[in-house]
Design a protein around this nucleic acid. Structure first.
Lengths: 164, 164
DNA sequence: GGAGTGATACTCGGATATCTGGTGTCCGAGTTTTCGCGG
DNA sequence: CCGCGAAAACTCGGACACCAGATATCCGAGTATCACTCC
């Protein structure tokens, strides 16, 4: 079970975009350069986040990406779902309906397999943790962590590449 | 993020093996037939579980697999880890050390990236749920769920293929 | 000088290769049983 | 009838193809800007 590397990229980008003044945007080229990753590939993930309603994209010069709602209303789970897809990691293939003693389909429709229920319960706990943390929370923690001097340089660099 | 289908197979097999009398074993051929899956491929996962110390394998005729310890001491997490591998789903690639303003390596070694910390916290919650449930628990729930008549047939079928 | 118009530069979006890891299968090593033979 | 030994049958273990999804890239569509021309 491996999570896409794009999730990390998407979260870092969301953090940057969450610290931008409202109604301003930042192009993917700048985001890619700031994080040292491929612009073409990052674009793919930003597109997914846009499709999920987390980001807004503005075409043309002075265009770019921005959060579609305040950072306090975007959770880490939103970003993960946007990039990884919403489906659960564990997919019950209904093994109990196979083999020489298959379980009747109507019973299976009525009550889920206990194995599936356990796995889904675990995933719900996982999702709850991610849903409890917003991009704003995470951004604040990161900001308080990074050395002030470096933080200033980053902010300046970002400001220069911010378009309204 | 997709979990290997083998986890489902492994859990079902563990449930069956957990209901066997101690010191008896069941061959992979029977386990595969009972669940309606490929024996060759199931063997691969049983091997992983054996390597992880969950199962014991006995070669030769009258051989097969059995739990290496009581079902009350095998957790669902043990099975998942055995088949999926122990590594976390989210791997921090230390993006903060890249780009034009890289974070100093010594700081990164001292304190983990906040994004990584959040993802790992979520995974810990996930693992806690899976660790809290043993194969014995799960087996009892499944047994109480399945229709008594079908359960009896399965037990008989399994008993016939159980070797000591 | 100002408005209109065309070219330009820059942005995102989608279609297209490549590659790693999960999926699936096969053959070989090892052990127990079984059968046959000799005493 | 009993003991010994070789062959066979059955088990797991590891090596080898195959395929889906993630990774990575490029080219095209669309838009705001800019320069130039004309009024």
């Amino acid at each position: 079970m491996k999570m896409s590397e794009g999730v990390e990229w998407g979260l870092h980008c969301a953090l940057i975009l969450g610290n931008l003044p409202p109604t301003t945007a930042m192009p993917a080229k700048a985001l890619a350069e700031l994080h040292g990753v491929s612009e073409s590939y990052l674009l793919k993930h930003l597109k997914s986040m846009t499709a999920a309603g987390i980001l807004e994209s503005l075409p043309g010069p002075r265009g770019g990406y921005r959060l579609s709602r305040p950072a306090t209303e975007v959770t880490v789970l939103d970003v993960v779902d946007a990039i990884e897809g919403k489906g659960p990691a564990f997919r019950c293939t209904e093994i109990r309906q196979r083999g020489p003693f298959p379980a009747p389909a109507e019973i299976c429709n009525r009550k889920a397999c206990m194995i599936s229920a356990t796995m889904l319960r675990a995933e719900r706990a996982w999702r709850d943790v991610l849903r409890a943390q917003t991009i704003a929370d995470l951004g604040a923690e990161v900001v308080s962590d990074v050395e002030p001097e470096r933080l200033g340089k980053i902010f300046d660099w970002v400001r220069e590449r911010t378009r309204s």
